[in-house]
């Protein structure tokens, strides 16, 4: 369904003149760097990373909402984003995006009815059938039809997210990009939303890109996981493999840093110390070698590339943890 190859997103951090004055030769940062991934119809890829890892930027770049500097995006067999080519409209015409903050992603002065109708109209739904379709969509996501005339601020967090799903469904997408759809949601209601997304995917067979920082949700919800660090994917693979036998030291540290709700299994050590370096000061060599407990001299000179550092392994590390 979706194929991304060597995608790169560059941002300018300061104007050309200012950079010249400050004597900085490189006023750019790479928010996304040489990312390749693919999602098959009906499957879910989880994009996991800490803040600043570029996961949201990647999601937006795929939709053509952020300009890409290099690389290609192929959708449904057609290359629609490439250097000098921007046919991202065609991607957006068959995709839907869901956002982190449910209420702020719904236009505050429009009622639920208009919010969903807007999506239906853009897909050329016949005007006479819009009302019936809105009711059908609301019941699909488990909301009463009486909510049609509510404004976003009159909805609870869970309800607003369901409206978000209904609107995404109205777009009849082949691909859904969900950017932190469960962030800020209480665990007691989070499950309902995840189940709903599962059901939607089963019914429509769409591909799902699930962007999250919540490792345990990603592990259980997604078919595949990609771990991002400083704009690069450091490890990609089936969710169980990555979560249980992470090979990249960063992925490994990330999963071990997760608090486990059992006082008898408290962590006594921390594997990952320090913090994510700023994108403007990307380390030489491997991005992670400054924090890596296993760093070797080679790591500060060469950049380990996904699939090449260790042939056949989808991990960007010269010395991966051995798969058990």
């Amino acid at each position: 369904m979706l194929q991304v190859k060597d995608l790169r997103v560059r941002f300018r951090t300061m104007g050309g003149l200012k950079a010249l004055v400050k004597g900085k030769s490189d006023p750019f940062i790479d928010a996304v760097l040489n990312v390749s991934l693919s999602i098959a119809p009906g499957t879910t890829l989880g994009l996991v990373g800490e803040s600043g890892s570029g996961k949201s930027t990647l999601g937006r770049a795929i939709m053509g909402l952020t300009k890409t500097t290099a690389g290609t995006v192929t959708f449904d067999g057609q290359t629609l984003i490439a250097p000098g080519l921007d046919r991202s409209q065609e991607i957006r015409a068959h995709s839907a995006m869901m956002f982190q903050d449910p209420i702020s992603s719904l236009s505050p002065r429009l009622r639920v009815r208009s919010l969903i109708a807007e999506a239906l109209k853009i897909r050329n739904w016949p005007a006479s059938k819009i009302d019936a379709e809105i009711d059908r969509l609301l019941s699909t996501v488990g909301l009463p039809a009486s909510l049609r005339s509510r404004y976003p601020h009159q909805l609870s967090g869970g309800q607003a997210r369901r409206v978000g799903v209904a609107r995404a469904l109205a777009l009849q997408p082949k691909l859904i990009i969900a950017d932190e759809p469960t962030a800020g949601l209480d665990v007691s209601v989070q499950g309902e939303l995840l189940n709903l997304l599962h059901r939607v995917q089963k019914d429509t067979g769409c591909a799902l890109l699930f962007i999250t920082h919540n490792l345990s949700v990603a592990q259980h919800f997604c078919d595949e996981l990609a771990i991002m660090y400083l704009g690069r994917i450091v490890e990609i693979g089936s969710a169980d493999d990555v979560a249980r036998h992470a090979q990249h030291p960063y992925a490994h540290g990330l999963f071990s840093a997760q608090p486990y709700p059992d006082p008898r299994r408290r962590r006594t050590d921390i594997q990952l110390t320090g913090e994510v370096p700023s994108l403007a000061q990307r380390p030489e060599g491997c991005d992670f070698h400054t924090r890596c407990p296993k760093a070797q001299p080679r790591c500060s000179r060469e950049v380990p590339l996904l699939g090449q550092a260790v042939p056949g392994a989808d991990v960007a590390c010269f010395y991966p943890e051995t798969a058990a």
Partner: peptide
């Protein structure tokens, strides 16, 4: 910069529509 503008753009809604329906009322 609000997310609902991004959401509208992700739905392929035209700029004029965005300005009139999503920005002006707010």
């Amino acid at each position: 910069n609000h997310e609902y503008i991004l959401a509208a753009r992700s739905m392929n809604i035209g700029h004029l529509q965005i300005v009139l329906r999503h920005i002006l009322p707010n």
